[in-house]
Amino acid sequence: MSTSTLTSWLAAIDRPARQTLALAQAPFRSTVGLALAGSGLLVASSLIAEVLVSAPGGALQVPKAQLLLPIFESLALVGPSAVIGAAQVGLRSTTRTWLAAFAVGLLIAGVVTTATLPLMGYLVLVSRAQPYFTPALLLPVLGLAGLASTVGRVLEAIEDPPAGRRASVVFQLALALVFGLRAAVHLGIY
């Protein structure tokens, strides 16, 4: 990974709205690349965390990724209607802007989960009791929080104040709701 890639990632993390608008102008493949990089980090760190935490007898279990899929499912379910709905109510975000915002959001989600990975290692080292749920399940939830908060920040930055705030809240609630429902199904609660 070159230094310029890293610098552009850090710029996207520091100023997501600015980077979103720049990505929307740039060739589409850079948006796809960023989304893939973010998703890759998110998936890899979540799976590594599951392997680490759920390996009691030395035999590595196959990770279940119960909460990883719901992130992408909720994005796939909420995303399209967000794009269309935003156009309907007259927001200025275009389809490209939305896609770029999702890409930046996925990148931040990936970096957040990757940064939390050392804590999982630490927990493996020091855990002396069996928790009710595996702490690895925390990572996808953090990833979703990163995604939702980033897209919300971008919306609030590039839309006019009341509309942007409203759109951000609606988007985040919808994302969280769908994630919760899909997660319940995957965990076998519902």
């Binding site: 392997v51 680490l52 935490v53 390996a55 009691p56 030395g58 493996v124 080292l125």
Partner: peptide, 8 residues
């Protein structure tokens, strides 16, 4: 345990 792996 995954701990020895981590230490490694």
């Amino acid at each position: 345990m995954a701990a020895p792996l981590l230490v490694l």
